[in-house]
Amino acid sequence: MVRDKNLQIRIFKNRLLYIVVCVFSALTAIPLLAILGEVLVRGWKQLSWTFLTEATPNAFEAMMAMSAGDPMPGGIANGIVGTFVMLLVAAVIAIPVGIFCGICLSEFKGNWFATVVSYITDLLQGTPSIIIGIIVYIWVVVPMKGYSGFAGSVALFIMMLPLIIRSTEETMNILPETLKEAGLALGGSYWRVMLQVMVPSAFGSIFTGILLAISRVIGETAPLMFTALGGAAISWNISRPMSAVPLMIWEFFNDPNLQSLIWGASLFLLTFVLCLNLLAKRIQKKWKV
């Protein structure tokens, strides 16, 4: 009987602890849900096909629509195109460079080159994005005599690079050494084994790292202000100023006539980041090394 009572106390304690854990996780989830809810409630009315396919309305059109009580014309297509193009260019440079540096870091530990790369990576990761924006302004915008989507890509590239380097390095570190040895024991050359055995084996995690890097920089506004500048028309030309979704949110905020577009744009950005993160989680699960 005594033992039974003990058991019951333990079951009770267990339950209590479980409830406490649940309450606290709920507490941490509240701010997140509140943000999501706010954005959703305010933004969903804005979302429509034209919102995604048309460029920013000019202030006059917006003012007219507002005073007539019509729905806001135009949309954020110029920002979507700009974000897409700049991210694509940034990713195309950052992925190979980042993977290469990541391999070097994990393979040549202690080597002076790896040490230097490692320091720079840490430094870059800790650099406030606005400073990266200014540097790229000096390095790219000034010599090229103008703001451009390309300069924006360079800024995003610099921000993505340390994330890809670190995720590659960490993945390579946990791959079993015998995998590399097995490849070399078959007479494979070092870089062939790296690229045909090791990198594919690490691919799932590296890809996850890339997605997370994209979702991390997609909302960056400060560095783009100094580089891509923004633009009201849909433009695919990377040598000219370009808009981006987060830049547009800033512009909408500053223009009393356009303020109602803020929430639609925010909702779009948030949804995109959320999807990227979910996708990353799934891939990581599926490709576990």
Binding site: P176, T178, L179, A185, P200, S201, F203, V289
Partner: peptide
Amino acid sequence: GMVFQRPNPFPT
């Protein structure tokens, strides 16, 4: 050639 202690076919 070499065969290792733990089987290690290339996972991909």
